[in-house]
Amino acid sequence: MSYRFGIAQINPKLGDVEANLALYEEKLRQARDKGVELLLFPELTLTGYFLRDMVPNVALKLSSRVIRHLKGLSKKVGFVAGMVEESSDYRFFNAAIHFEAGEIRHVHRKVYLPTYGMFDEQRYFARGDRIRAYDTKFGRIAILVCEDLWHPSTIGLAALDGALAILCPSASPLRGLTEGRVQDDNARYWEMINQAYAETFNLFLIFGNRVGFEDGVGFWGGSEILDPFGKRVAKAKYYDEDLIVGEVAFESVRRKRTMAPILRDEDLDLTINELMRIRERPSHLKIQEKAPRKGGLKVKGKKRTRGRKKR
């Protein structure tokens, strides 16, 4: 089956949910005119990205008026929105929410919150604790938000969980220039991993990035849809607003997976066993920092708490 997926490469207003909601509505109208069946909005585009202390002011409970309004909008065209989700115990998540046929189909809370260099996400957001593929009317898909995808384990899990397509809403800032290229270094890196992931995991990769500037930091756009052969089905402009549409033909996933049944051959038990072993002791890199002791390697140090990395 083939579907028309779209990406709204927009420039939202920082901290102005009402203005951005109007922008969402405008883009949904345009997408519907183009026959789009699922529209991806980039990360935090309902709120803007560098929110800092504004996070609690723009956060939305799933029972809020804005969410009800978004549900209503999805009766015409399904879409994935990027926003701050507030949980009942008052935690704030960098979330991407899939609205379909008047309902919430899925909520993905960003797991990997970059907190280095220009990024400060863990200061303001709580960390998501799951990676899940989920069923839609198009088939089984998964959402990973921006930095999530820089951790190959996330897309590996999503693929093993049956995802035929990955939606990756992003707010990726431009940085680094190299002579002779049409895009900045960060854009080039993303394009490389998007293509490699699509081909490696034999799935569609739908990457939606925003544009505009916030306090001088520019977002590079360049949204794209890649098929399981690594071919760019649709590509948006760099550094400028755009709305792109691409055919997502799931039969090409079947063809690719027939030719290269990598996922079929994946040894889950081996992976799990090795992960359990690795979790129980520090990595070999850590051991190498100290000289090996006589009589074999004895490892000191406390066990790592499960699944949590302290920073």
């Binding site: 680094g176 220039l177 049409v182 895009q183 001088g216 520019g218 550094y239």
Partner: peptide, 18 residues
Amino acid sequence: PTNVGLLRSILVSFIRNE
């Protein structure tokens, strides 16, 4: 590394936006 062509378009867009 400078890439003057790309730099020019980024800075023009920066000024207009901001």
